[in-house]
Design a binder for these strands. Sequence first.
DNA 1: GAGTGGTCTAGACCACTCA
DNA 2: GAGTGGTCTAGACCACTCT
Lengths: 232, 232
Amino acid sequence: MATGYRAIKAALMDRLRAGEWPAGSTMPGEVQLADEYGCARVTVNRALRELADDGIVRRQRRRGTEVIAGRSRHARLTMRQARQQIEADGKAYRYDCLRQRVQPAPAAVAGQLALSRGAEAVEILGRHWAGDRPYQLEHRWINLAAVPEARDESFSEQGPGEWLLQAKPLSDAEHVLSARNARPREAGQLQMVPGDALFVIERRTWWQGEAITWVRLLHPAERFRLVTRDVM
Amino acid sequence: MATGYRAIKAALMDRLRAGEWPAGSTMPGEVQLADEYGCARVTVNRALRELADDGIVRRQRRRGTEVIAGRSRHARLTMRQARQQIEADGKAYRYDCLRQRVQPAPAAVAGQLALSRGAEAVEILGRHWAGDRPYQLEHRWINLAAVPEARDESFSEQGPGEWLLQAKPLSDAEHVLSARNARPREAGQLQMVPGDALFVIERRTWWQGEAITWVRLLHPAERFRLVTRDVM
DNA sequence: GAGTGGTCTAGACCACTCA
DNA sequence: GAGTGGTCTAGACCACTCT
């Protein structure tokens, strides 16, 4: 008889794969499974909780454990600070600031950050270098209502990402990954050919419901990729 | 006094953010924290385990709980099957197969799947439609040594992804996200302009150390993005 | 050998949602 | 009201790694 939550999780996965509980159906309750495997209910609970974390089943009180149709694949991305990524690759890191100013946020930015009309924000356009090649173009807006210290901070030497990470806590983040062709100005700033593909990461972060910052990171696609390695 | 593993996890996060335990240092042991919060050790254990799952700390028997330096940002991506994604968007899903054949794997593919020289694999080129527009071009190789049933399976109606998901378990997956410009043939197959940006997802999956499949998914970047929403 | 985290058990109470 | 999952407790043993 299998013991241990890992063994029980594996056994349940096998039975799921064997089709014993088809997608959409409800699995037996924790008490019954614990009885079946001869273990405590908490042990089954942990196995099932991990299956739920993995996106294989959905659990609700009283409703039971439902098998999710067409299991989705999860991947855990790690996005490091540009400096860390570049130095880990054994290249010299450098940052330069192309623009920094305080102004009312344009409508598109105000929408992203949920700012009221005319609210001021810091706009920063910076560039991260890996050795002698541009690695990333960073276009950032910081909500001055949430981070008033940013008004008098200079981002000509240090990137705003590093500063924010130590200056402000954050509770929530949203990432949007996409791609598009480089516009002429961007291509020039990144030393690439206009029209070549860019890998785009946009990130919004919040602290307790208040938007902190919105940033768009442009990477020449030829020199950039994100890799994950997941154990299922 | 805070009770419940959620409250304790939040309290620990606050203390971490306040700098009580700097990056690289070791946090107090479970026994001490349980004493401090007046709860059972298991409750602290669960809070710390989740912090480890979130990538905030690293835990090892005997060594204790270490605060990870330079907190990286984690994002949990959910990549759904094409059919589910498209149907969730309220569009009609359709699949067509452009090529299916069994042949010795080319060197590049054999390298990805760790196949021996001359080993056979199934090659499938398929296309997923969202309504009347191509959504994704799928180029897949399946290791016949690991999945011999794939030799006689027809992928003209059902995509190989859906079939594999129910036919084989998987233990590990690797994703590579990148972007590039569309080549003329790809652009034709995806009804886009050659040179326009593609969002590329490559995935390799294993079952207990044996490579199952390698697939490259090409999306017209204009109509594709990945979104994550994470609570830190 | 000792101290740490990893896990299991048995029992208990609570929260939610159904009939 | 009843049945489900969510969580807590107290105690126990094990596995690993340090000294």
